[in-house]
């Protein structure tokens, strides 16, 4: 993986774990699973975070400290699936190694990737309410 991808994977995984800790187990203790694996046939690294709690619905006014984890995960990962059920929540993310697309070429100090700028702009909506 490129250094950019490693940084993106680390932060996205942290945010997924933080979400599980905050939303699934806020008033209780619990366990979650973290699975990271390389899929050679797809040349892809996949990270899955599964919790067994029930995410509380976001309050009407979530306050200033909340609501930025998922947008950040969506911007960092090349693909994200979030599945919620009464049994828990699964966040599945992946990064492609061979294809230099998405996050792979979003070097902050290097060449700008217009795709990520568009995503950055769309992410700006997450901050528009303050």
């Amino acid at each position: 993986m490129s250094g950019d991808q490693v940084g993106a994977l680390t932060l996205a995984t942290y945010e997924a774990l933080a979400n599980a800790a905050i939303h699934a187990y806020l008033d209780d203790t619990g366990t979650f699973d973290l699975l990271a694996r390389y899929l050679p046939d797809r040349d892809r690294v996949e990270v899955t975070v599964t919790d067994y709690g029930r995410w509380r619905p976001p309050p009407d006014d979530p306050g200033p400290f909340s609501g930025r984890g998922i947008p950040l995960i969506q911007a960092l990962a090349e693909h994200v699936d979030i599945t919620r059920s009464t049994q828990g929540t699964t966040v599945r993310m992946h990064w492609n190694l061979g294809l230099q697309t998405g996050t792979a070429k979003n070097s902050v100090d290097g060449e700008e990737d217009p795709a990520i700028d568009r995503r950055g702009l769309s992410r700006a909506a997450a901050f528009s309410s303050y």
Binding site: D4, L72, V108, A124, A125, A126
Partner: peptide
């Protein structure tokens, strides 16, 4: 801020525009 640890999350969330 510069570098991936700080500037990237600022940019990805659009906070660098605010």
């Amino acid at each position: 801020a510069h570098g991936n640890a700080t500037f990237r999350p600022l940019r990805l969330t659009g906070l660098d525009q605010a």
